[in-house]
């Protein structure tokens, strides 16, 4: 019986919440160390959005009509919110692949045999992904400034936009966590984490003015959670092409973006933790 009294004593060191925070940070640190030791992952994660910035700016810039203007400069300013938002959602694939790899290698078994908080392995991973997303956004913002993107609002509003982007990215990594726990291999998690993001990010206001779409597609685009973040960023950056649609998320994009993100986290975190508890390598 000594083991029981011992365990009670250990458990009383902190309540469940502080234990959960502590364990999540331990796991986050582990994932950050990995990112530093495998810099290829971070670097390749940067190349794709930078390529999009350059390609979209120079290929589409000047041929797309944004709010009645076809000036390349207008399109570039319009485009950036879309690229930023797309980039943060692509963190989904990284989170999914990382978790699938941990399952595959037996690390999830080790973690599950330890007296640690149940959600901490996943929270730690998603927190580390958020740090990587922040880094990616920083580099991307510099590239965007170089090709001519400018903000026309206060520093507070600009930082607010980046905050919303991070929150959106964080929410999407929880979708990645569910995918990672559902597939058998890291490769499947990467492709499974990416394929559905193309329709989600393209049937939106990210790269084109959604008011030019056929009505049914425009409805989807206007209510797409992803569009809310893009619209919110355009508004907060003071960039052109803010949608005039009367759909609620387009009228109140900041609120819509926050609500969507919180909902996604609530649903997918619950699913992911439930899957984790019964996970089998």
């Amino acid at each position: 019986m000594s083991a029981v009294t011992e365990s009670v004593r250990v458990a009383s060191h902190g309540n469940a919440f502080t234990r959960s925070v502590r364990d999540s940070l331990v796991v986050a640190k582990r994932n950050l160390i990995r990112m530093v030791r495998i810099p290829e992952v971070v670097i390749f994660g940067l190349i794709q959005p930078i390529m999009f910035v350059v390609l979209f700016s120079y290929v589409f810039g000047g041929s797309l009509d944004i709010g009645g203007s076809t000036s390349p400069q207008v399109y570039r300013e319009f485009l950036m919110a879309g690229i930023f938002a797309q980039t943060v959602t692509f963190a989904t694939a990284g989170a999914g692949a990382g978790i699938a790899e941990d399952m595959h290698k037996g690390l999830i078994d080790r973690f599950r045999s330890l007296p640690m908080a149940r959600g901490a392995v996943l929270t730690g991973r998603t927190l580390a992904d958020m740090v990587q997303t922040a880094l990616t956004l920083l580099v991307l913002a510099i590239v965007a400034l170089l090709v001519g993107w400018r903000t026309h609002t206060s520093i507070g509003e600009v930082l607010g936009a980046f905050g919303l982007l991070l929150l959106t990215g964080y929410a999407f990594t929880w979708i990645g966590a569910v995918i990672g726990l559902s597939v058998r291999t890291p490769e499947a998690a990467t492709s499974g984490g990416l394929v559905w993001l193309f329709p989600v990010t393209f049937v939106s206001n990210a790269f084109v003015d959604s008011s030019n779409m056929t009505p049914w597609l425009r409805h989807i685009a206007d209510w797409n959670p992803f569009s809310a973040t893009v619209q919110a960023c355009r508004e907060l950056f003071g960039n052109p092409g803010v949608s005039t649609s009367d759909a609620w998320p387009m009228q109140h994009p900041v609120w819509a973006s926050v609500i969507y993100s919180v909902l996604i986290i609530a649903v997918f975190r619950t699913l992911a933790v439930r899957k984790y508890r019964s996970a089998a390598a």
Partner: peptide, 20 residues
């Protein structure tokens, strides 16, 4: 959870993080 505090598990695959 109380059991987890009293056991050690060493698996069939060496479950260590190779990048740590």
């Amino acid at each position: 959870d109380a059991v987890r505090r009293s056991i050690g598990l060493s698996g069939q695959f060496a479950a260590v993080d190779e990048y740590l």
